[in-house]
């Protein structure tokens, strides 16, 4: 992944010092669900320093990801699987800056069947959307950010973004939500080389064998589940 969009040293410094408060807050919130965490904690995101998101955005991403894919007895949460790290890294790729999208104007309103017709690439859709949601939260919840809300309030807010009931400045909440959900799912299920799906935990959850790339012996087997654990692009076995 490209490194050339990394923040300058001074910005890095700035958000290292800022990062303590919101991350700790998000961490506390996550504790509520620690009890039924099924997998090991080695996959937790505490040691990853974001290079794209600032501290406030990072706190949002971690909190929102774990609402979308929570920890439970089915499988790891998004952040346990490394989805926030994936998203931070993915936002630095040419894809997220609109490399394969048609980005020329005019940008006119069109029916939903024509998809997103705005002028923002994915990384800015996320940034503008996060800012919008946090601004909404500050107004509605006496100065609190999304990451600082109760779980129930976070969930409600994401639901109203999903349906488009929530109105945000500068962006359609529905479009923002849809990109956020896509990115979170990708971070959950991608090959570990992209930063998410740590220890192939999400693949194990659904029984995806990864890049085995040869199933000729198993095409006609009907009476037993596919027996082999996943293998990733680096050849590691899960």
């Amino acid at each position: 992944m490209s490194d050339d969009k990394a923040p300058s040293p001074s910005r890095r410094q700035l958000f290292k010092s800022l990062s303590l408060v919101p991350i700790a807050a998000a961490g506390l919130a996550a504790c509520a669900r620690e009890a039924d965490k099924p997998t090991d904690l080695s996959a937790s995101q505490g040691d990853y320093t974001p290079a794209f998101f600032n501290a406030a955005e990072w706190a949002f991403i971690r909190a929102a990801c774990d609402q979308l894919i929570p920890a439970d007895n089915i499988g790891p949460s998004a952040s346990q699987a490394g989805a926030p790290e994936f998203i931070d890294r993915h936002m630095q790729t040419p894809y997220a800056s609109g490399d394969i999208w048609y980005m020329q104007g005019p940008f006119i309103e069109a029916a939903p069947q024509f998809g997103y017709q705005g002028r923002l690439p994915v990384r800015d859709i996320l940034r503008v959307g996060i800012k919008g949601i946090d601004a909404h939260c500050a107004k509605q919840f006496s100065g609190k950010s999304f990451a600082q809300l109760e779980h129930k309030d976070q969930e409600e807010l994401l639901k109203s973004a999903e349906t488009g009931k929530l109105e945000l400045e500068n962006i359609s909440a529905k479009e923002f939500f849809s990109q956020l959900l896509n990115e979170t799912r990708m971070g959950y299920f991608c090959d570990p080389k992209h930063g998410g799906n740590k220890n192939m935990a999400a693949w194990k959850m659904i029984g995806y064998p990864g890049m085995r790339a040869d199933y000729s012996a198993w095409v006609e087997v009907r009476d037993q589940p596919y027996p082999l654990p996943p293998v990733d692009l680096a050849g590691k076995r899960g």
């Binding site: 979308l68 894919i69 929570p70 439970d72 089915i74 499988g75 994401l158 659904i206 029984g207 995806y208």
Partner: peptide
Amino acid sequence: PIRGITTAPGVPNWGSAWKQGVKDAF
């Protein structure tokens, strides 16, 4: 899973019920 997992009717798009839905369907 990146190409998308179609879930059964009634399964939400996120949350624990979605996780169960993709696990059941995949």
